[in-house]
Computed example of a mutant assay.
Amino acid sequence: MTTTTPSGRVAPGGFAGAIASEWTKLWSVRAAYLCLLAGLAITGVFTYYYASIARINEHPMEPVGNAAASSAVLSQFAVVILATVTVTSEYATGSVRASLLWVPRRHRVQAAKVLVVAVVSFAVGVVYAVVGTAVAWGVFDGRALFEAGTTLRQALAVGLYLALVAALAVGTAFVTRHPAGALSILVTLLWALPTVLLGVGGPELATVNDSLPHGAGDHFMRAGIEVPYASATAVLIVTAWVAVAHLAGLYVLRRRDA
Results as ranks from 00 to 15, higher is better:
residue 2 T to K: 15
residue 3 T to P: 03
residue 6 P to K: 13
residue 6 P to I: 10
residue 8 G to N: 14
residue 17 G to A: 12
residue 19 I to Y: 11
residue 19 I to R: 13
residue 20 A to W: 10
residue 20 A to P: 13
residue 20 A to G: 14
residue 21 S to I: 10
residue 22 E to N: 09
residue 24 T to E: 11
residue 28 S to F: 13
residue 28 S to T: 15
residue 28 S to V: 12
residue 31 A to D: 08
residue 31 A to M: 15
residue 36 L to E: 14
residue 36 L to V: 14
residue 45 V to R: 01
residue 52 S to C: 05
residue 54 A to Q: 03
residue 54 A to V: 05
residue 60 P to Q: 02
residue 60 P to Y: 01
residue 64 V to C: 02
residue 66 N to F: 01
residue 66 N to C: 00
residue 66 N to P: 01
residue 70 S to V: 00
residue 73 V to I: 10
residue 73 V to A: 02
residue 77 F to D: 04
residue 82 L to C: 03
residue 85 V to T: 13
residue 89 S to N: 15
residue 91 Y to T: 07
residue 91 Y to V: 08
residue 94 G to N: 07
residue 95 S to H: 08
residue 97 R to P: 01
residue 98 A to C: 05
residue 98 A to I: 03
residue 100 L to T: 12
residue 103 V to H: 00
residue 104 P to C: 06
residue 104 P to D: 07
residue 105 R to Y: 04
residue 105 R to D: 05
residue 106 R to P: 00
residue 107 H to C: 05
residue 107 H to R: 11
residue 109 V to R: 00
residue 110 Q to C: 03
residue 113 K to G: 05
residue 124 V to G: 01
residue 126 V to S: 01
residue 127 V to C: 02
residue 130 V to F: 10
residue 131 V to G: 06
residue 132 G to V: 04
residue 132 G to D: 02
residue 134 A to Q: 05
residue 134 A to I: 09
residue 134 A to M: 09
residue 136 A to K: 07
residue 137 W to M: 12
residue 137 W to K: 11
residue 139 V to M: 00
residue 140 F to G: 06
residue 140 F to C: 04
residue 141 D to K: 02
residue 142 G to H: 04
residue 144 A to S: 14
residue 144 A to V: 03
residue 145 L to Q: 12
residue 145 L to W: 01
residue 148 A to T: 10
residue 149 G to D: 15
residue 149 G to I: 03
residue 149 G to L: 13
residue 149 G to M: 12
residue 152 L to S: 09
residue 165 V to C: 07
residue 166 A to E: 10
residue 166 A to G: 15
residue 167 A to K: 08
residue 169 A to H: 08
residue 171 G to A: 14
residue 172 T to L: 14
residue 175 V to I: 13
residue 177 R to D: 12
residue 178 H to R: 09
residue 178 H to C: 05
residue 179 P to E: 12
residue 181 G to I: 08
residue 182 A to R: 11
residue 186 L to K: 13
residue 189 L to P: 07
residue 194 P to E: 09
residue 200 V to L: 06
residue 201 G to D: 04
residue 202 G to H: 04
residue 202 G to N: 04
residue 202 G to Y: 03
residue 205 L to I: 11
residue 206 A to K: 06
residue 207 T to P: 07
residue 211 S to D: 05
residue 214 H to W: 09
residue 214 H to G: 00
residue 217 G to Y: 08
residue 219 H to K: 14
residue 220 F to L: 09
residue 221 M to L: 08
residue 226 E to S: 15
residue 226 E to T: 15
residue 227 V to E: 11
residue 230 A to Y: 07
residue 237 I to R: 09
residue 237 I to L: 09
residue 239 T to P: 02
residue 240 A to R: 02
residue 243 A to E: 08
residue 244 V to W: 05
residue 246 H to N: 09
residue 247 L to P: 06
residue 250 L to C: 04
residue 251 Y to A: 10
residue 251 Y to F: 07
residue 254 R to Y: 06
residue 255 R to T: 10
residue 255 R to E: 06
residue 255 R to Y: 04
residue 256 R to C: 01
